[in-house]
Amino acid sequence: MVASGNRVLELDGITKSFGGVRAVDGASFHVDGGEVVCLLGDNGAGKSTLVKIITGVHTPDSGQMSINGELIKRWNPARARDAGVQTVFQDRSLAGRQTVARNIFMGRELTTRFGLIDDKRQEAEAEALLRGVGFTSKALSARSEVLNLSGGERQGIAIARAMHFAARLLILDEPTESMSLTQIRLTLGFTRAARDRGIAVLLISHNIADAYAVGDRFLVLDRGRVLETFHKSEISEGELVRFMEHANADSAGTGSRTTSERQTTQESSA
């Protein structure tokens, strides 16, 4: 393969099964710096499993993955983080009974000279980040417990965290789910901002309208494989929606898949 100098992520023939169910079945694609690639697909298409492979939560059964042109051997969340990969997971990866600041800096604490957590600095930076993401409500502070926040607020915090630390690759898993229109606009704005800074963005979504609004390329995933790839110039939003409906209708016809699909979704989110 001809790797462009800017190739951040490259997957080649990635396979992953859970108890006999193939969640990802030979997926190959790449994401370059400064582009937004959207992974589209129905429930159980393997989107979440792929995300967890790229971020080191799951190890693939076979296939190759390179980050920044380097072939990945032993991959785990800590290495992914160190390689500049940041992810906003579908479940937002927030701990409800901890403060917003502690959540934002979890695993990357700012410490004092004595190795203790510098809560003051973390809170100040967290406040700045929250304002940067567009939070204006004074009821939400860096010291709020996440449990007391709305779904949109939680999403904002997860995005603020990923934006703050993403060096090379930003993965957004269903970023606009359960968000108000204002919040969606902000989220998409941030996605563009990340791309304009040269970050490679991989966006996973059910919502074709949201994906089309920011995406440069669209990969349609079906049963763990990349079914089709479109550049934005090749397809209109309407055509993309129709293509997805068609693909979904096709795969819905294959009898036993629905149950195995559910298992996969459950396992990959367990």
Binding site: P77, R81, R92, S93, A95, Q98
Partner: peptide
């Protein structure tokens, strides 16, 4: 005040999230 305690609480609160954020 220490990372150890922060990780203990985070992992006890949401184990999955802790793992995703590379907390050991």
């Amino acid at each position: 005040k220490h990372k150890f305690g922060a990780y203990v609480r985070f992992a006890g609160d949401n184990r999955e999230a802790a793992a995703q954020l590379a907390v050991p």
